[in-house]
Design a protein around this nucleic acid. Structure first.
Lengths: 247, 247
DNA sequence: AATAGTTAGCGTATTTTTTACGCTGAGATT
DNA sequence: AATCTCAGCGTAAAAAATACGCTAACTATT
């Protein structure tokens, strides 16, 4: 499955900040940096899913490949948000050795294009859990990260915060059927502060593309909430105006 | 002054969309792609100022270098806004030959990090006008461009449009002393549509960091307007809130 | 000298959006 | 039966956006 090692471009990589939402807090998917061969002394650190670019591979395509290999999902929301290219961003000798071991190329300097990705946590099989030791981590409580991956995640969150104010992308993180409250909790988790439920719901319901279903929660210890779904076609058709959620 | 040719990384480059404002319309600084040596048959096309990265050079630093060499200015507003990395973005044989001739390295695939830059058109000496055939072009009327530089400019304008709604960066394009009308014309030029002068001025003057001066225009064929200046320190101090110009 | 043309700059009235709450309803839990 | 929690509808007040009217001050034109 893996390309010959020498086909990697030693200067270019992609890293994916994969966001998920479990109903309570915003999560990010991390893998564990483990050396395949020798070098047991290298400490196991977490890192973002990412890879060097295969020669002549498209950047976006590389990000898709990384996510497909990791989660088994394609057609995922994926957005480039920044490039990280300071010459010393990969400077820890352990990090360099690990990269060279796993890629088979000599690492001089790597510029990485960062994407953030939004996935429905329930849908993700996270196929290579065992192989890569992939796991979800609360963005408010991240483990030690390799390279400059902490900075990349922080920037990714900033980009996401901006994006949810202008584009209806929160539905990429919510299940197909969702309640308004779930949506609000998601917004609160991303923005990092609380919102008034009555005003929040008013603002959301102005949008015709958020459609009520004839279905309600049950088994909850309070008045059951109605489910809604996002009508993407309706949104695409009349998005004459940019939405503006100034939360 | 120039580094040895072999020091370029053949995979990485920066390109700068340098915006300027002449009081009427938004301009972008382009250079002419001319081959130093032979190859007279290569058509002269315009391109963005940019360059391959010197080994171990910082991306931001590379963008600064390109601008310093071109305009003689440092401490310029510079913001990374996107990466362009499709494998075929440099595919025209003439473009490839020109790149190889001028850089001295073999070009396989180049990922470019795009910055936009805001400069006060009056201040710019545009030092290397002759050498690079640099010139300002109206963004509404661009010449034929090499590579994917037209796409890069279009994306740069979009980023700028977003940015001027949230950050007081228009002052990077205006002279130190400016009138409200000049500011409005600049906003109109960037956004591509007209604004109501009375509402525009009300909105701007709410900001304490736009300070009136005791100085007015003269020699204009209408009531002379007051000059203002941007007080950056005042802005930095109490920017508790993100500004929101929903023009 | 009068007139026309242009932008400056102050105002007002109306509509829309935001903000801050009050309150009842429908379930489960104790 | 009382209590807890969130759902969901509502209202009143404040703030912001929008749409204009109008006079002031200057140059250019006749």
């Amino acid at each position: 499955m893996k390309e010959p090692l020498t086909s990697f471009n030693p200067h270019l990589s992609v890293d994916c900040v994969v966001f998920g939402f479990d109903g309570n807090s915003l999560k990010v998917l991390l893998v564990e940096k483990v050396a395949d061969n020798h070098a047991k002394h290298i400490p196991r650190k977490h890192k973002l899913p990412g890879d060097l670019i295969i020669r002549m591979e498209d950047l976006y395509g590389a990000a898709e490949r990384v996510l497909l290999e990791l989660t088994g999902l394609s057609n995922i929301f994926l957005k480039q948000f920044s490039v990280f290219g300071t010459p010393d961003r990969i400077s820890d000798p352990d990090d360099i050795r690990w990269l060279e071991d796993t890629s088979g190329v000599t690492i001089s300097r790597v510029v990485t294009t960062a994407y953030y990705s939004l996935i429905k946590i329930g849908k993700s099989k996270v196929k290579n859990v065992v192989k890569n030791n992939a796991s979800w981590h609360d963005v408010a409580n991240l483990p030690d990260l390799a390279f400059d991956h902490e900075e990349i995640i922080k920037e990714g969150i900033k980009s996401l915060q901006m994006a949810i104010r202008h584009e209806p992308i929160c539905f990429e993180l919510l299940p197909r059927k969702f309640t308004l409250r779930e949506t609000q909790i998601l917004y609160e988790a991303i923005l990092g502060h609380e919102l008034d439920n009555r005003n929040f719901r008013k603002k959301l319901l102005k949008a015709a593309y958020i459609e009520p279903l004839d279905e309600k929660q049950n088994g909850v210890a309070h008045k059951p909430a109605r489910f809604y779904k996002f009508n993407k076609k309706k949104y695409e058709l009349n998005r004459t105006d940019i939405l503006n959620y100034n939360f």
